[in-house]
């Protein structure tokens, strides 16, 4: 295994296969930690990790916070509503102030693409992207890949379908970059208004025929349909979307026998995925959430200069 050198985690576009493998390998060890009775190792004792969320999040924020805490780092949370952001301070300004308190890592989520890149250019602390605009959500893609590998034993050669609102999805973009780097074949499928043709330049194929896509895929990943998209007229109606593109029991009959259903959450049950499918035997949605903590522990551990040290307490 080669050595980890990156100081920030911004996106998967410029990440090599070897680097992704290091993260997934490291995450395996940390998954074991979370299954213990005492779920804590002292790896990052004395380090400070700040969750700087300019956009609401429950799952990702708590997953990062648990990951940091299980590594014994100190954490604080800053949510846009409770800080001075409403007073017109820019993201960079806020981050500079937080860094001045000597923090080691800033986990940032922002509604505008590129904010983590700008912070990373201007700060010394490690910057971890917890989702920026429609661009990138690298830890989600990494935990998705971890889950695929865990469930299907490999990533390379698999056919992965990402379904739904590709246009506005940072999960889709990060997964396309990551999965294609790892040798999987990615197909995107959804209403043509939400699947821009340029997405093929990222390395994914477009297929608007949902049934054909279901038939040929090893992994189905319906994305959350955001309700406000319908107000923006991208969809004729949510009803038509659910009927045509929603994954229900009937459509799933077309799928391969060992297909897995993933979802970055939170799910709109009955819209992009029916309740019986989301809770059914093919679903790995809760495994993804469990694995998220392990993957984020691995990232914090690798980024915060734990290089060379063994994972104490193992």
């Amino acid at each position: 295994m080669s050595e980890w050198v990156k100081h920030d985690l911004l996106d998967l576009q410029d990440m090599s296969k070897a680097e992704i493998e290091i993260i997934l390998e490291t995450a395996k060890s940390f998954k074991e930690v979370s299954s213990r009775d005492v779920k804590k190792v002292p790896a990052l004792r004395g380090k400070t990790v700040v969750m700087l969320f300019f956009e609401p999040s429950t799952r990702t924020r708590s997953s990062f916070e648990l990951a940091a805490k299980r590594l014994s780092a100190d954490t604080i949370n800053i949510a846009a509503s409770s800080s001075s952001l409403s007073k017109g301070e820019s993201a960079l300004d806020t981050a500079r102030n937080i860094e001045a308190m000597n923090v080691d890592a800033i986990v940032v989520r922002h509604s505008s693409s590129g904010v983590p890149q700008v912070l990373s250019k201007n700060l010394n602390a490690s910057v971890i992207n917890a989702g920026d605009g429609c661009r990138s959500h690298p830890t989600q893609a990494l935990l998705d890949m971890f889950t695929i590998q865990e469930k299907l034993g490999r990533i390379g050669g698999l056919k992965v379908a990402i379904l739904g609102d590709i246009r506005h999805s940072r999960v889709a973009r990060s997964n396309i970059w990551g999965l294609t780097t790892m040798g999987a074949e990615v197909t995107v499928c959804g209403p043509s208004t939400l699947v821009p043709p340029e997405i093929e330049d990222l390395g994914a194929k477009i297929n608007y025929d949902i049934r054909e896509v279901i038939r040929q895929s090893d992994v189905l990943m319906p994305l959350r349909i955001q309700m406000e998209r319908q107000q923006q007229k991208f969809l004729p109606s949510l009803r038509e979307y659910a009927k045509e593109f929603g994954i229900d029991k009937k459509k799933l009959e077309l799928a391969k026998k060992d297909v897995i259903i993933m979802h970055p959450g939170p799910t709109n049950r009955g819209l992009e995925v029916s309740a019986e499918v989301a809770d059914g035997e093919y679903s790995v949605i809760l495994n993804q959430v469990t694995n998220g903590v392990a993957v984020r522990m691995a990232i914090l551990y690798l980024l915060l200069g734990a290089k060379g040290k063994s994972i104490e307490g193992k």
């Binding site: 576009q13 693409s113 590129g114 605009g133 429609c134 661009r135 990138s136 973009r173 340029e198 330049d201």
Partner: peptide
């Protein structure tokens, strides 16, 4: 709008 905006996730 084009390949670059799609890549960058910008409107």
């Amino acid at each position: 709008e084009g390949v670059t905006s799609t890549l960058l996730g910008l409107k």
